[in-house]
């Protein structure tokens, strides 16, 4: 899972990053509110861990601006402000969960898993099924009508973007940020190369799914199983 960590305590940030990466999460991080909002608005993450007391822009304002922009990414507020009023204010501002410092990492990890089960935006068993394909994200294996194929790391991330958003038109920059990360030092044209690779994979696997380009953005049209069977 891709996690955005917005925390001004650099020691805590480094520790959380280490623990999250041990659990195979990809972590982007920053230490102030304005940078955090910029990263948040790129809509490239599955989850945001947000401190409340941040320089340049406090965490609640970051959260409110992101929600006003239409982003529904799950957010866990991480803060030393633990009074009842603080927790209510945080949750009413749009947070999905609230954890008070100091905390044990295992509790944060459990809350992350809990959010995943509730939102459905990331699967516990790693299996995504759309149309005539199933993708195992933990093993990076694509199962199609004709055969199963092993995908590379980026191919897998790219396919996941579309499988988690079937029949949605997704902007190129959003796809790029989700797959390569924000501020990646590579060119955006790499995305075209990988779209080409992914189209080939779907063809090899015998799938009738195909990535469509719509005014420069991309979509994976999805038919329900009955529509596939009747075709």
């Amino acid at each position: 899972m891709k996690i955005l960590l917005i925390e001004d305590d650099k020691n805590l940030c480094e520790l959380l990053q280490y623990q999250l990466q041990k659990e195979m999460h990809q972590v982007d991080y920053c230490h102030d509110g304005r940078d955090g909002l910029d990263l948040f608005l790129q809509n490239a993450h599955d989850l945001v861990l947000l401190d409340r007391m941040l320089p340049t822009m406090n965490g609640l304002l970051v959260l409110k601006k992101a929600r006003n922009a239409g982003l529904t990414t799950p957010v866990i507020l991480i803060t030393a402000l633990g009074e009842l009023y603080d927790r209510i204010e945080g949750l009413d501002s749009g947070a999905d969960d609230y954890i008070v410092k100091p905390f044990e990492y295992e509790e944060l990890s459990a809350r992350i898993r809990s959010l995943g089960r509730r939102s459905g935006s990331f699967e516990d068993n790693g299996l995504l099924q759309v149309g005539d394909i199933t993708y195992d994200s933990s093993l990076r294996i694509l199962y199609g009508p004709k055969c199963e194929l092993q995908l590379s790391g980026r191919e897998g991330l790219l396919l996941e973007v579309f499988l988690r958003n079937p029949s949605c038109t997704i902007k190129r920059m959003v796809i790029f940020s989700k797959v390569w990360g924000v501020d990646a030092p590579v060119e955006e044209s790499n995305l075209d190369t990988y779209i080409h690779f992914l189209r080939k994979r779907l063809r090899y696997a015998g799938s009738r799914l195909n990535l469509k380009t719509i005014r420069g953005n991309l979509r994976l049209p999805f038919l329900c199983r009955r529509q596939y069977e009747n075709k």
């Binding site: 194929l149 092993q150 590379s152 790391g153 030092p185 590579v186 790499n190 690779f197």
Partner: peptide, 21 residues
Amino acid sequence: LCQPDELLLNAYEKYESLAAK
């Protein structure tokens, strides 16, 4: 059993950022 294109693509991805830098 390994798919050769997937092996090479993983090597490419490992060095992509470093080459860009």
